[in-house]
Design a protein around this nucleic acid. Structure first.
Length: 297
DNA sequence: GATCCAATAT
DNA sequence: AATATTGGAT
């Protein structure tokens, strides 16, 4: 069984989110309104945010922007004293979360660290803490179901493993991403890896507009709007365990910045990015949203 | 004082 | 049900 551990681990490593993969994710989390409000027109963002290709499927459909009930308060109030809209954990965001936890190792996987690794702008420690709490419960449940200690980690893809036990309705979100075995049995720290996190722009929806693409993390509907950013600089100082350190994990806070230097931001075809979101159970073809259209769809 | 975590509230 | 907020413990 140890061997298996190493095995899957290797696999895991290979599947680690590469910068390229992480990139696509970063798009749409921010609404144009917000961007404008903050004067953030980072060239990079500009490109990423408004992909020329008309293929702009109605992300709005699943854009968790759920409701922008038309409150109509088109306000303009400064982003002060505004409440953050509820964060919606999409499969993509969750994936990022799981990856972060996996890389950190159960021991170091605490909200703050996870948040830093995820490097999603706008994500708060509380957001992560809350999600983590639930995720832990999920792991326990799965562990319990595992019962015989047989395989354990199956994900939604296999389609069979634990599907039988719990209700299908069981955390479909969690089922969308594989659960690393060590999660199930503590005791192993894990190696130090770099998760080159590309600065991920934010999330949080703010207002409604016509077709917007916000997918990854969307936000519920706040009565108010707009919100802001908080300066939380990330500093990595694992004072306890030595070894893992990220040279550049600083989340890109607001800073207008101008890095048009010679960085050919070539986001080569983001490709379809459709990863393992499958898990179609016999319920009717549950399809997890397709990631961003990235152009070919 | 910061942050974790479990409980509790919305 | 999912996420946020609170409160006690480290």
């Amino acid at each position: 069984m140890r061997e298996e551990d190493s095995n899957w681990f290797s696999r895991w490593e290979e599947e680690l989110p590469s910068p390229e993969e992480l990139m696509p994710f970063s798009q749409s989390l921010i609404t144009p309104d917000l961007a404008l409000a903050f004067d953030i027109r980072n060239p990079d963002h500009a490109q990423l945010q408004q992909p020329p290709p008309p293929s702009q499927p109605s992300l709005s459909e699943f854009a968790a922007d759920s409701g922008d009930l038309g409150s109509g308060e088109a306000g303009d109030e400064p982003a002060r004293t505004l409440k953050r809209p509820r964060l919606v954990w999409t499969p993509q965001l969750h994936k990022r979360f799981v990856d972060a936890v996996a890389h950190l190792g159960i021991k170091n996987a605490v909200p703050k660290t996870i948040m830093q690794l995820m490097s999603v702008d706008g994500l708060t420690r509380e957001n992560v803490a809350s999600h983590l709490q639930k995720y832990r419960l999920y792991l326990k449940r799965v562990q319990g179901l595992s019962g015989g200690s047989g395989g354990g980690a199956n994900g939604g893809s296999g389609g069979a493993g634990l599907g039988a036990s719990a209700d299908p309705a069981t955390d479909r979100l969690f089922a969308s991403s594989p659960v690393p075995p060590h999660f199930l049995h503590p005791g192993r720290t894990n190696s130090e890896h770099l998760l080159p996190s590309v600065p991920v722009p934010a999330m949080q929806h703010h207002h409604h507009h016509q077709q917007q693409q916000m997918v990854a993390a969307a936000v519920g509907h706040p009565h108010l709007q707009s919100q802001y950013h908080r300066p939380q600089m990330g500093h990595y100082g694992p004072s306890r365990n030595s070894q893992f350190e990220h040279p550049f994990l600083g989340r890109q806070t607001q800073q207008p910045m101008h890095r048009i230097g010679g960085t050919p931001v070539h986001n080569q075809a983001p490709s379809s990015y459709v990863e393992d979101l499958e898990s179609a159970n016999g319920n009717g073809g549950r399809k997890v949203l397709t990631l961003f259209p990235t152009g070919d769809d």
